[in-house]
């Protein structure tokens, strides 16, 4: 069978070149990136995730947040991301050091979240956004429990809910552990430090 080998060998070579160039190169170089020491705070950068935030990134992945939210600020040379104050420097591979999986995101149906932790007022605001539909984002009501108030209202009960989202008299809305973890993760999203390969930039 005369031409079998050239086609198969050629396809294998072509595929292998991309496989080595993308998959293996990424693994051998980016896969070995480590944190860098930070003299100012006597710790390392990027900052490690708390246990709760680490659990939260799995909720973020499972709920498919990355289909609508990117976590990539692109350099000022090609995009207006920095001018738009999505971040004060571009996002680089090292920023995903503690992310598993890396939630770099595909689309901006919702806003970029690379620095959401810097924009969010407090945890209560995050919970309100997740619980009630006020924007283009669907409600994640199922991550919360509506329960009767026994004695005093819980300290973590959601406040300021509107319309049909506000619980009936004598009831309160409290986050499940998943919702608490997700909020902790979202609040941890801050790229406000310099990295050797990505110093902080100023908006033009």
């Amino acid at each position: 069978m005369n031409r079998t080998p050239p086609v198969i060998v050629g396809v294998v070579l072509v595929f292998a070149s991309a496989w080595l160039g993308v998959a293996m190169y990424s693994y051998m170089t980016l896969g070995y990136l480590t944190s860098v020491p930070d003299k100012a705070s006597d710790s390392t950068l990027p900052p490690a995730l708390s246990g709760l935030a680490d659990a939260g990134q799995r909720v973020f992945a499972a709920e498919g947040c990355a289909y609508c939210h990117t976590q990539q600020v692109r350099p000022a040379s090609i995009s207006g991301d920095i001018e738009k104050k999505l971040g004060s420097r571009r996002t680089v591979a090292r920023d995903f050091l503690y992310q598993q999986p890396a939630a770099f995101g595909y689309l901006r149906i919702g806003p970029d979240l690379a620095n959401y932790g810097l924009r969010a007022k407090d945890e209560a605001e995050v919970h309100r956004l997740l619980y009630q539909t006020g924007s283009a984002m669907p409600s994640y009501r199922y991550l919360y429990i509506v329960r009767p108030i026994s004695g005093q209202q819980s300290a973590e009960a959601l406040v300021g809910l509107r319309g049909s989202y506000s619980p009936p008299e004598g009831y309160e809305v409290v986050p499940t552990p998943e919702a608490r973890a997700l909020a902790a993760y979202l609040l941890s999203l801050k790229q406000d430090y310099s990295l050797p390969e990505a110093p902080l930039e100023k908006a033009k």
């Binding site: 993308v22 998959a23 896969g31 070995y32 920023d95 992310q99 890396a102």
Partner: peptide, 11 residues
């Protein structure tokens, strides 16, 4: 899974 920094290009 390989470490997070290497995942974006592979994905």
């Amino acid at each position: 899974p390989i470490p997070g920094p290497a995942q974006a290009p592979v994905a």
